[in-house]
Write a protein that binds this DNA or RNA. Structure first.
Ligand SMILES: [Mn+2]
Ligand SMILES: [Mn+2]
Ligand SMILES: [Zn+2]
Ligand SMILES: [Zn+2]
Lengths: 144, 144
DNA sequence: ATACAGTTGAAACTGATTATCAATTTAAAA
DNA sequence: TTTTAAATTGATAATCAGTTTCAACTGTAT
């Protein structure tokens, strides 16, 4: 969805928000670490290299804001803290995660394959599906 | 999976745990409120009627224990606290949840319909799926 | 009845997240 | 470019779910 810092300013301006060096640095960090699922503290540690004076509260606030704006997505890996990842396709549904119960490694699943299930849900429950969160637990190739 | 308090004692005994009035009362509460997704505090409030002297720490400990034993399942509805529900079929996968973004109502989906997706995952990622957590977000029949 | 391991409740503690607030900064207007 | 108002920041305190500690208590096997 977001190509670079260039259009972050536009996205912010639309809602009356300002582009600050802190916000820029935080998004830079997330883009640079694409593929990771960073916690707030982890983003804080990374971003301090570019922006040593930044406060942890600002990181919490900014990640929440970027999530509200649809730039990033908050995910829950049941490890006691929120994690975030960059949104690639804003239109598309959130991708699935495979979580290895043994080594804790996270794999991402590109295919969605939920159309059939979602159609059944629309039909049987009269529920209009907008998005989903899907986690699979099990053993990865190395651990089984 | 669990029929009544009768076999809770057996399940506990197998692992060297004891059947206490507190554990009995907590499971009673969960059985009585089947279909709800109770938080620890909510279980605490209900169970105090039968067991007024019970401590909140005991409720936390017992819910965790029952989850470990496979009697109940912890679920995360992104509202800041853990919630639990009785396990009906221990063998089967956890059922799906439909969460209305407007009214917050939770619907349960009986059909699984994930075999195809799970087969693709086994094949393409060499990942052995044991269980899953699936949440759909959208609008329920009343809200759309 | 005894013994002992498991359990309890109260209270202190932890760790993630949020709220507060005075000082600072952005962005738009003058 | 200066002015201005609203948004933002960092430090700190506060909150809140959940965990730990520990002395007193209880369930169960013998
Ligand atoms: Mn991911
Ligand atoms: Mn349910
Ligand atoms: Zn693994
Ligand atoms: Zn609704």
């Amino acid at each position: 969805m977001i190509d670079s810092i260039e259009n972050l300013k536009e996205i912010l301006k639309e809602k009356g928000y300002k582009l600050t060096p802190q916000r820029r640095a935080i998004l830079d960090t997330i883009i640079k670490n694409q593929g990771e699922h960073l916690s707030t503290e982890e983003v804080y540690d990374y971003v301090k290299k570019d922006c040593p004076e930044i406060g942890l509260a600002t990181v919490y606030r900014t990640l929440q804001l970027l999530d509200d704006l649809g730039v990033i997505t908050k995910i829950n890996l049941d490890d006691g803290c929120a994690r975030y990842e960059l949104n690639i396709n804003s239109e598309d549904h959130q991708h699935h995660h495979l979580i290895c119960s043994k080594c804790g490694n996270i794999l991402e699943v590109e295919v969605d394959l939920l159309e059939h299930l979602e159609n059944e849900i629309q039909k049987n429950y009269d529920f209009e599906v907008k998005d989903h969160k899907v986690k699979f637990f099990g053993l990865c190739s190395k651990c089984k």
